[in-house]
Design a protein around this nucleic acid. Structure first.
Length: 269
DNA sequence: CAAATTGTTTAGCT
DNA sequence: CAGCTAAACAATTT
């Protein structure tokens, strides 16, 4: 689950704010019983993490990793929740995720200036941090949670296409004056992600991620694990700047969605 | 249906 | 100590 999805979860949990935990269950090894009878006081997100603060205070930190999911008032029948909380007005279920208790300090220490979805996101601050990673490939840089907190593999692949650059372009191959454009392109795409996901239109907007053909030149896309992080990359060898440094950096708008019958997204996460 | 996946941490090397 | 890799974790979709 990428950053924007966590913000959506936060919104969906608002109805439980100020409510008391009536019942706790789940297969987490963390001391879940300590949450009984406590009130959910606040909900914070950072990067791909959600923090729940209960009276006490007790702070939990939940990360959904690659396969995690959640449900509200509508449990899955196929597997057991890691944590289930019952409130007077409903229940929330977390599945296949990492949950840690006692996360008070994390919540305080988090750098909100690098969180792509945070109001405190600070372009200049991000560019400063980028300067410490000049040798990184863009495909690795965009996944660096210390610099682009909340960006994931979809964001990475789509932003690289929007800037028409090869994933193995090094940051140092981009003019320094354009670095702020890179940062903004990632942040802007994340907000589009957020909007599209709420409309169940996210996958419809994918231009290269998990696709086979380049939407511009119709050539077959390259699908390969590359970069230091070896995450799957989808890119067009022809359209994503095969000749480095020749062209001024431009962030192209996302192509309009095709009017064919791509089915609506029904993902839980 | 094998393969991929909206990801990260940690143990164990060199 | 830095930096790398493999392993572990876990569930659903195409």
């Amino acid at each position: 689950m990428e950053g924007p999805s966590l913000v959506i979860l936060k919104e969906e949990l608002q109805k439980f704010k100020g409510k008391k935990v009536l019942k706790v269950s789940g297969n987490t090894k963390q001391p879940k019983e300590t949450l009984l009878s406590r009130k959910l006081l606040r909900i914070d997100t950072w990067a791909k993490v959600i923090f729940l603060t209960f009276s006490g205070p007790i702070v939990t930190k939940t990360h959904f990793l690659l396969f995690g999911s959640y449900r509200i008032d509508d449990p899955k029948e196929t597997n057991n929740p890691r944590l289930e909380l019952e409130f007077p007005n409903g229940k929330v279920y977390f599945y296949s995720c990492s949950i840690l208790f006692g996360a008070d300090d994390y919540l305080e220490k988090v750098d909100r200036k690098v969180d792509v979805m945070a109001p405190e996101w600070d372009q200049k601050h991000v560019v400063k941090l980028m300067a410490t990673k000049q040798d990184s490939y863009l495909c690795d840089l965009f996944l660096d949670q210390n610099i682009f907190a909340g960006a994931g593999n979809i964001v990475k692949n789509e932003v690289l296409f929007n800037i028409r650059r090869h994933p193995l372009t090094r940051l140092s191959d981009i003019e320094k004056k354009d670095w702020s454009k890179l940062a903004k392109a990632v942040k802007d795409y994340c907000w589009n992600f957020y909007k599209w996901k709420k409309e169940y239109q996210l996958r419809k907007h994918w231009q290269v991620h998990r696709k086979v053909t380049c939407p511009l030149c119709e050539r077959k896309l390259i699908k390969k694990k590359i970069g230091k992080l070896q995450r799957m990359s989808y890119h067009c060898k022809h359209c994503q700047n095969p000749k480095l440094k020749l062209e001024k950096l431009k962030v192209y708008p996302v192509l309009p969605i095709e009017k064919n019958g791509i089915k609506e997204e029904r993902f839980d996460h």
